[in-house]
């Protein structure tokens, strides 16, 4: 699989969203590329500048070079198979490892960088770091109104061309062709003339589920209450880590997350149809 090839685009009627064959988007075409085994889609007001595109790819590629367990020569692979000790690892590797360990402590172990066999696997946090780096690339190129989606994890910034908020649909865990709910991101404050008077608002939405990439979530506490957890936070690392932690840790971790991180929005789903929701996801 070529990690940098663009996805062929073959629209078909079945691709349309339910209830609406033609979503009303007046944006430039998205910039789409493969990274970290999934697909990244960037949609920006005014389009993604050509000069930013190689840097967006690099934001993911640089991390993947070092942290991919699918690349036998990567530093992460060498640590995982114990040909390299943590002490010998690069500063960059240890910085990410330390971040993962900090999150393990903050989530009482619900999030962990260790696989059940004891090997270190930082992929749970590396993808979020890639998204964060890509968002920084857009910032550096003066792009403030955009939606960045990497394999279902999302960062939204600013607002749509007409000033409406970005809306993030949440997939129904029981039927992936449908949306269960949605989250409307806050829009920047504007004056009477519509000119923004505040910095672009930014929110991150991450969803973790048990149905895909089965090894991605490890049920450490053997809690299997939730089959899908969506977390909205100010940054994608927090959203992604806590979505994974709540999925693995169940209702106890959910309560700790909403208590410990003010401003968090959560939508958690149980296989039997029960839902847990903070105000943003309530009807």
């Amino acid at each position: 699989m070529n990690a940098t090839s663009e996805i062929s685009r073959t629209p078909s009627p079945s691709d349309a969203l339910p209830h609406d064959p033609a979503p009303a988007l007046t944006l430039a075409e998205p910039f789409i590329f493969e990274a970290m085994g999934t697909v990244v889609s960037v949609r920006a007001v005014g389009g993604v500048p050509a000069a930013a595109r190689p840097h967006l790819r690099d934001a993911f590629e640089t991390l993947e070079d070092r942290f991919s367990l699918y690349r036998p020569a990567s530093e992460a692979s060498q640590v995982a198979n114990r040909t390299l000790t943590l002490r010998q690892a690069s500063d960059e590797y240890r910085r990410v490892y330390d971040l993962a360990i900090d999150w393990r402590a903050a989530t009482s172990g619900a999030f962990t960088p260790h696989r059940p066999d004891g090997a270190v696997d930082l992929s749970g946090i590396v993808k979020a770091l890639g998204i964060q780096a890509a968002a920084a690339v857009l910032d550096a190129h003066g792009v403030h109104d955009y939606v960045l989606n990497a394999g279902g994890d999302v960062v939204v910034s600013g607002a749509q061309p007409d000033g409406r908020p970005w809306v993030v649909g949440i997939v129904d865990p029981d039927d992936r062709t449908r949306l269960l709910s949605q989250y409307s991101a806050p829009v920047p404050v504007s004056d009477a003339g519509g000119e923004p008077t505040s910095a672009p608002t930014r929110r991150a939405v991450a969803t973790s589920g048990v149905a895909e990439r089965g090894d991605h979530v490890w049920h450490l506490g053997s809690d299997d209450t939730f089959c899908q957890v969506t977390v909205v936070a100010d940054d994608i690392v927090t959203a992604d880590v806590l979505a994974t932690a709540v999925l693995a840790g169940g209702p106890g971790t959910l309560a700790e997350a909403t208590t410990g991180w003010p401003g968090l929005e959560v939508l958690a789903c149980a296989p039997d149809g029960r839902r847990w929701a903070t105000p943003a996801f309530r009807a």
């Binding site: 999934t38 394999g151 279902g152 809306v167 993030v168 997939v171 969506t230």
Partner: peptide
């Protein structure tokens, strides 16, 4: 809806 969040999908 502007974008969709769901459990990570593969390429």
């Amino acid at each position: 809806v502007s974008t969709v969040s769901g459990a990570t999908y593969t390429t």
